[in-house]
Amino acid sequence: MASKEEFFASLTPSAIEPTPMPEVAVATRDAPLREHFIEVLEGVGGRLGQGDDLGDVKQRAAELVSQNLQVLSLMEGVQGNRDPSAVSDPHELKDVDYTIAPARLAVAENGSVWISGEDLVTRNAVFICEHLIAVVDENRITGTMSEAVRRLGKLGGGWGVFISGPSKTADIEQALVMGAHGARSMTVYVLRGV
C-alpha cells in the first residue's frame, strides 16, 4: 500500500500545458422565481404543498398523525408523533411514513431544495421515510444551482443535499418509476415571506 509520498512520486507529470483557471460565471435567473420553481418542481415529480403558511403545514402534520401514520417533524413549530430528540440511530427511522424538514434554499431551475444536515436529527431522516415534506421560505428561492451554492457558504465540515423531487429510477426499460430507494413522494410547501 502506497503512502501519500509514494503516490505523488509515482505520478507522471501531466502533458497538459499549465492552463489558467477560467472565471466561472455565476448564472442567474430573473423573477418570478416562485412560479419557475413550482413549474420545475412539478416537472420532476414533486408536488406543491397546499397553502403557503406554516399553519397549513401544521394542519397537514396533524392530519397525517390522525391517520395513525408515523410522522417525524424536524420543522420548528410543526408537531409530529415521533420524538426527534429520542433518535439515537438512523435504523430506528425505518418505519417513518413522513418526514417534515426545513429547507434552507430552493433552486428554481431544477426544482430542488437544499436540506442541511444541521437541521436533521440524523442525515438519513430525509431518505428513509416513505414520503418527504420540505418547507421553504419563498424568499429563499434562487434562480440557479450556481447562485444556490454561492449562498450556502462553506461546504467542508458539514453535510447537506439538494433534493429534486422524489426518489426515482428508469432502469427498467427507461420507464420512469417514483420511489426507488428514497422517498416515494416529495411535497414542498413554499411559505409566503414576511
Binding site: V40, G43, V44, V107, T122, K154, G160, S164, S167
Partner: peptide, 17 residues
C-alpha cells in the same frame, strides 16, 4: 446525461457523521 434538470439527489459530504 438523462435530460433531467438535476439528479434527484446532489449530496455534498463535507464531514463524517
Amino acid at each position: 446525461a438523462t435530460g433531467q434538470p438535476s439528479t434527484s439527489y446532489n449530496s455534498i459530504f463535507g464531514a463524517p457523521r
